[in-house]
């Protein structure tokens, strides 16, 4: 039994229309994701991956096409209303948290359902402590420290916890480990894997690391020039290796995937 969670129908987005910088960022793109799908997205710079995420989360409205989330048309919905059901993590660990506020204050903003006038209670603190302990980063003993004092990995793990505190219908991960050192990235990816699986969150993850694109999730799509050029799942995907994926890219686009970072990643 499967249920469509995200349905993107023929969306287009062009930037700078009528100027010399006119750029078609996403062209007639369609994508369906089932509930619980974990889709990894790869593609060279400028392929339209982040534009796709911005369109889904409502940073801007698309020029044409339709976006449905859990059967509901969100094409014209403002960003903050979509944010109730869409969680998002960016590459820069600084973007997802308020540095001058403490860990518990950041968490409270993301977690509270007590309305605007509620404040942090003992029970809240207990719950925060338990959830932070699960991250395995020692944050549970520093709940009153400003988030600005944390390392990039710790901040990204905290942002992930905030984004999934009340499991969203859709989680968008935009290279959220790319700015971290390899060991920390590994750790954050493991936390991501657990969180997504435990809560059965539908998730899209952009990555430049071909290996983790294949290791994580159940489906991989490749983008180029604002379109999806390859979409693999099931058995076909199980057989893929980093090399065959790179060959695939060459075969479909006639070009070479533009950076070594992907191969080395």
């Amino acid at each position: 039994m499967s249920q469509t969670m995200l349905s993107i129908r023929n969306i287009c987005k062009t930037f700078g229309i009528g100027t010399v910088n006119e750029k078609v960022a996403v062209e007639n793109l369609s994508l369906e994701a089932e509930k619980g799908d974990f889709i990894t997205i790869i593609g060279s710079n400028g392929a339209g991956k982040s534009t796709l995420f911005n369109a889904i989360s409502g940073v801007f409205l698309v020029d044409s096409g339709q976006i449905l989330l859990d059967g509901k048309d969100i094409t014209d919905m403002p960003e903050h209303r979509r944010a109730r059901s869409i969680g998002r993590l960016m590459q820069d660990p600084m973007t997802g948290t308020a540095p001058k506020m403490s860990i518990e204050e950041n968490l409270f903003l993301a977690s509270s359902q007590k309305g605007w006038l509620g404040s942090i209670s003992k029970e809240d603190r207990k719950e925060f402590r338990e959830k932070l302990a699960l991250l395995g980063m020692g944050l549970e003993d520093r709940m009153e420290s400003p988030v600005g004092l944390l390392s990039g990995g710790q901040r990204q793990a905290l942002t992930l916890l905030m984004a999934t505190y009340h499991p969203p219908k859709l989680l968008l991960l935009d290279e959220h480990t790319a700015a971290l050192d390899p060991a920390t990235a590994e750790k954050v990816l493991a936390i991501t894997k657990n969180t997504v699986a435990e809560n059965e969150i539908t998730c899209l993850m952009i990555t430049h690391n071909m290996q983790s694109a294949l290791d994580m999730g159940n489906r991989t799509i490749m983008m180029d020039g604002g379109r999806i050029i390859y979409d693999a799942s099931g058995e076909e995907r199980d057989k893929l290796t980093v090399d065959s994926l790179l060959n695939k890219f060459q075969e479909v686009t006639g070009g070479v995937l533009d950076n070594d970072r992907m191969r080395l990643g």
Binding site: S57, E79, H80, A83, A98, N106, G115
Partner: peptide, 26 residues
């Protein structure tokens, strides 16, 4: 400043981009 509203005010001043991409209407 201790309520969720107050925290939202502080977060808006501290990291506008973060609050903008959250469910809070800045």
């Amino acid at each position: 400043l201790r309520t969720r509203l107050g925290l939202a005010i502080r977060a808006t001043g501290n990291n506008l981009a973060m609050v903008r991409s959250s469910s809070i209407n800045t």
